[in-house]
Nucleic acid binder design. Structure first.
Lengths: 344, 344
DNA sequence: TTTAGCACTCGCAGATCGAGAGTGCTAACA
DNA sequence: TGTTAGCACTCTCGATCTGCGAGTGCTAAA
């Protein structure tokens, strides 16, 4: 167990390092208002804290920096959340209050505010489409051989896709198909559309439609090639401004990750509900060994919908970022709920 | 006028510098097969070429590097286009031959091949929507207060947009509206939809539709908020691998540009038809002062449609990149034309 | 238990230096 | 007269050294 004094010093060191990005020595800890011990005393304590694994020395005559364990302890026990300033609150609210037609606009906006407020990189994951269910499906021929399929989910997400399409299908038949699909598939989770298609729908189609084979094939493709949940970024290059990332090679590794949305959505998908903080190697992903990822979830009617995330250095402004994310994710939930009620 | 020998030497220097990224000295020029002069002779010529502005010295005892004027001369007069290797040709063809349903898939793929073949960053601009005309418009209610508007252009581009929608519009009326719109707007350039709407359509709607006011407002918004031409990237971080970009600050400047699609599409839109090469300051954009941008256009039925572009250092593998871009843009045009014929 | 004092460590920035690459000039050569 | 060998000179780069400053850890005194 750490003594009161050790806690005080650990907190002081983390706070200092977070703002200055430089190893902090005993003298500068001692000079802080909340600390009333001499440098020598601090040194002893620091030495102990190092032995316990909370601090590290870059080299023998530099100050100490928090270790991963140190950050973890800080986050779990020491950190005092900041109250958001009026400016921050109004930044968030004004951006989110903006009237929007599409779900995605809200998410894009959120990514933008989040990155501009924190000056880290923000990642916002759209709803996990596979968990949402189908509300409506439409089929619109746009040429003799092409059609647009539109799928609307219960969460209000709209997806359109152009497909090859049996040209000689006449209007009445087409309507029939659409009716069958809507009839049978409403409420079915997107992930299960495939199954339903091959089991129920195929026999039905056979009865009513001439071109049912190519139709089936087409539908099969549509249901298969669902987009993954979309990923939105804010301030992709913000992270380059952090002093710990002044190495082009490392930067490149990280930016490359951003190019693969599936990987990103795996890395940032939050498991639990609420706020999650992963520090350094806790991310279990080497390029992020000295990054911290904070995620929060937003939801609709109590159902987990998506994740907002922040990527920054382990030396992150935890108190502020946490407060912001907490506020933002709750606000998103609120607005989403209101929006959904209005549009269902 | 430059002498034969000066041309030979200039070409040798540019070629060498392009591949090695290091100032080239008289000795290494002299050692080349096509050059049969002693280093001393070369030195004299190099000195002259420098005086004429084709070469530069990083410092007095380094070799020479091509100046912007040197590259320009090289590109205009000296460069011998390489023949693409079988591998390159088949890379391009196999990627583009891939069956695709949506226009954008072709463009995305093109961006990808281009960047992977050149190892620079590729930028491909989609069709300039404002120049294309409307082929079909559809309106699908998806809830009591929302609808999806789908616009198909003559180039086969499909665009969907969710909008607020007068809920109490009944089926028959809706159909009427859609018919009017299609009737009156087919063949109209997207840029002119607004005008048409306020002039012709509004009076027509007034006759047939109860909710014509909110309907008009909604349509007005749809026609206004057209997406700009889309921008697709390939190998965004490729440029970081170039030795001239090992400075995080500069890299950040360039990557930031990529975050603003409108800016990018302005910078990369090609004016003329065919291949354009802009070297360094010719780009008239400071962050690109030591970059070269090569653009080529692809077209449909002879109409300029979009642009493929490459961003790399001024020290670019001109011969190879030019050949690749030429081939790719022509292939895109070919495939696009075939695709369009099939689907119109 | 806390603190002052002090020797010690180590990285960093600046200075110095030699090696290597390349130039420019001069003088000899074909 | 054009070409080339020779050579002194310039400049960068990396290695080595040095003093400084920041910071530590230990000891002994308060």
């Amino acid at each position: 167990m750490l003594t009161e004094r050790q806690l005080l010093i650990l907190k002081a060191i983390v706070d200092d390092y977070i703002t200055n990005a430089e190893p902090v020595g005993s003298r500068s800890v001692s000079k802080r208002d909340e600390v009333s011990y001499s440098p020598a005393t601090i040194r002893n304590e620091m030495s102990d804290l190092e032995e316990l694994g909370f601090l590290e020395k870059p080299h023998s005559s530099a100050g100490r920096i928090p270790s991963q364990k140190g950050y973890r302890y800080y986050v779990d026990h020491l950190l005092s959340p900041t109250k958001l300033t009026k400016g921050e609150v109004s930044d968030i609210e004004s951006v989110l209050d903006h009237r929007f037609n599409e779900f995605e606009q809200l998410i894009k906006q959120s990514a933008k505010v989040l990155s501009s407020l924190t000056s880290y990189t923000s990642i916002v994951l759209g709803p996990e489409v596979f968990e949402s269910t189908l509300r409506q499906i439409q089929l619109i021929p746009i040429s003799s051989s092409q059609a647009v399929v539109i799928i609307v989910t219960d969460t209000g997400h709209v997806e359109s896709q152009t497909v090859q399409f049996p040209g000689d299908l006449e209007g009445a038949e087409l309507e029939k198909v659409v009716n069958i699909l809507n009839d049978r598939l409403r409420g079915v989770p997107l992930a299960r559309l495939q199954d339903k298609l091959s089991v129920e729908i195929s026999t039905l189609l056979k009865q009513y439609v001439n071109q049912y084979e190519s139709m089936l094939k087409m539908l099969g493709e549509v249901f298969q090639t669902h987009q993954n949940e979309k990923v939105f970024y804010g301030g992709k290059t913000n992270i380059l401004a952090q002093p710990e990332f002044n190495n082009v090679e490392r930067v490149r590794n990280i930016l490359n990750i951003f190019e693969e949305d599936t990987l990103v959505s795996k890395l940032f998908r939050s498991e639990g509900n609420g706020l999650t903080i992963k520090i350094g190697e806790e991310n279990r992903f080497e390029p992020f060994d000295d990054c911290t990822i904070i995620t929060a979830t937003y939801s609709l009617d109590g159902n987990h919908m998506g994740t907002v995330g922040i990527l920054g250095p382990t030396r992150m402004e935890y108190p502020r970022v946490i407060s912001i994310m907490d506020y933002l994710s709750k606000d998103m939930t609120k607005i989403l709920t209101a929006w959904h009620q209005k549009n269902s």
